[in-house]
Computed example of a mutant assay.
Amino acid sequence: MENQWTTGLCSCMEDGKTVCLTCFCPCVTFGRIADIADEGSTGCGRCGMFYGLICFVVALPCLFSCTYRTKIRNKFGLRESPASDCLTHCFCECCALCQEYRELQIRGLDPALGWNGNMQRAVSPPMGQHMMG
């Protein structure tokens, strides 16, 4: 069974910080999303730079970024909505990146920490809860 996205495509203003980051530096937002989607195998910097290069050379980063929307959807069993991943990124690139970033956050992953940072956080006890010995 496919699940719904937890926020809408046009719910960008729910997180002003991500909107600003995405509008002014989409390569950073995308790099963070890609690092989580690839479970740390490609790295935030590498994907972000490749995204920036595609923007500069062909001005169509959606050709690359839509593949990561598919990865996130598959990871969480999400519906391809409101349109195909490619069309969503083609016509609403910033909104799609913001929605993906929010989805990761809502599901307990902090894209700013990257995959490795999230994995370390998952195995480390929260601050102040150290065992007394």
Rank of each mutant, 00 (worst) to 15 (best):
A96W: 03
S81P: 02
G77C: 04
C98H: 05
C95H: 13
G77W: 05
E93S: 15
S84M: 12
Y101F: 14
C62N: 08
F56Y: 10
R69C: 15
E80Q: 09
F91Y: 12
L87Y: 10
L63P: 02
H89F: 15
V57R: 10
E100F: 12
N118A: 11
H89R: 08
C62K: 05
C94I: 11
C94N: 10
T88D: 02
L104Q: 00
T67M: 15
C95G: 05
S81G: 02
F91L: 15
G117I: 04
E93N: 15
Y68S: 06
W115S: 01
A112R: 11
C98A: 06
L109H: 05
S84W: 09
T67W: 12
G114R: 04
R79D: 08
L104A: 00
S84T: 09
C94L: 13
R73C: 11
D110P: 09
L97K: 01
P61Q: 04
A112C: 11
A112T: 05
P61K: 10
V57I: 15
Y68M: 12
M119W: 07
E103S: 04
F76A: 03
V58T: 09
F76W: 08
R73A: 06
R73Q: 12
L104E: 00
K75A: 07
C86S: 03
T88E: 05
R102G: 00
D110R: 11
V57P: 05
N74C: 09
R107L: 09
D85W: 08
I106F: 06
M119F: 04
T67G: 14
K71W: 11
F56G: 03
T70M: 15
L63S: 08
K75F: 07
F64C: 11
V58I: 11
R79A: 11
C98P: 01
R79G: 07
F64K: 13
K75T: 10
P111M: 07
G117K: 01
L109D: 00
C95A: 12
L60W: 13
S84K: 02
G117F: 03
S84L: 12
V58P: 02
N118T: 07
V57L: 12
L87W: 08
Q99Y: 04
S65R: 08
A59P: 07
N116H: 13
G108D: 03
A96I: 07
S65N: 13
N116V: 13
C94T: 12
C90D: 00
E93M: 15
A59L: 13
L87I: 14
V57F: 13
A83T: 10
D110G: 06
N74I: 12
N74W: 13
C90A: 15
K75P: 01
F91E: 04
Y101K: 05
C92Y: 14
Q99I: 03
E103R: 07
N74H: 14
V57H: 05
A112I: 09
T88N: 02
L104V: 01
I106R: 09
S81K: 10
V58L: 11
C86R: 04
K75Q: 09
V57D: 02
A83P: 03
L78A: 01
S65L: 13
K71M: 14
D85F: 09
D110E: 08
W115H: 06
E80I: 05
Q105M: 14
F56C: 10
G117N: 02
D110K: 13
N116R: 15
E100R: 06
H89L: 14
C94R: 11
L78R: 02
L78S: 01
